[in-house]
């Protein structure tokens, strides 16, 4: 078995053309998913059953089923429903890109809301009591005390989720999208050289992962300035 270096040098630029799509999928889904997560979190900790119950069911379903199945349901499944075909969302849901964004966002939203919830639970009860004793309202306590600390506590798990999301973007290739993985698969289909192509693709993804982790490491360090004691 020979290692075709030329093939690697040829295919890398081709695969990198899919990087734009990969990054679009990543950032768009991350933004929408995080916004959704905040809404779900507020519903979950609201203390009102008619808000927290639907949120819990949503999270349970989206964390309990494979993301591939979720993608298939949205891309292949929704067009079956007349309701969907006639809705205003149809232009988005008709396109594989739109479906991928929707699926990834809905999925990420569920995971990230649990991550944020973990952060909120990690805030020392004494701090919340001190804020209450000072007269801050529930809303003020959440915004000025709980949220800043919860965000910092959530960062490690959140950065892991961003990496997961990036890996999930590769599944877009199963619904015809030509992200990096999609391009790689077409190259392999033509050249029958899975090692060269897939291994180089793997390296590209590892670089992306490394960049994500470095960025979050930097953010974490900045947010933890006050935690490092000078004693």
């Amino acid at each position: 078995m020979s290692f075709d270096l030329d093939l690697i040098l040829d295919s890398i630029p081709q695969m990198l053309m899919g990087l734009g799509l990969t990054l679009q999928l990543l950032f768009l889904s991350l933004a929408i998913g995080t916004a959704l997560a905040i809404i779900l979190l507020l519903m979950r900790i609201s203390g009102r059953w008619f808000l927290s119950a639907p949120a819990m069911v949503y999270i349970y379903i989206f964390r309990g089923t494979p993301i591939l199945v979720q993608i298939f349901i949205i891309y292949y499944g929704l067009p079956q429903l007349e309701l969907v075909r006639e809705s205003i969302l149809w232009p988005i849901l008709r396109e594989p890109f739109g479906c991928a964004i929707v699926a990834l966002s809905l999925n990420t939203g569920a995971y990230v809301s649990e991550i944020f919830r973990g952060g909120v639970l990690g805030v020392d009860r004494g701090l919340k009591e001190a804020a209450a004793a000072l007269g801050l309202s529930t809303r003020q306590r959440f915004i000025y005390i709980t949220a800043p600390i919860a965000i910092r506590l959530s960062l490690p798990a959140y950065s892991n989720d961003v990496v997961s999301l990036m890996k999930s973007t590769a599944l877009a290739s199963t619904i015809t999208l030509l992200d990096m993985t999609g391009i790689a698969r077409t190259i392999v289909a033509e050249t029958y050289a899975p090692y060269e192509v897939f291994l180089s693709l793997m390296v590209i993804y590892l670089v992306l992962t490394w960049m994500i982790q470095r960025s979050f490491g930097w953010i974490e360090k900045r947010m933890s300035r006050h935690v490092r004691s000078e004693i």
């Binding site: 020392d124 004494g126 701090l127 009591e129 001190a130 004793a133 000072l134 005390i145 006050h226 935690v227």
Partner: peptide, 12 residues
């Protein structure tokens, strides 16, 4: 006003 055993100063 209240002063707590574990101070509870806001760390951030």
């Amino acid at each position: 006003g209240m002063v707590f055993q574990s101070f509870n100063l806001f760390p951030h």
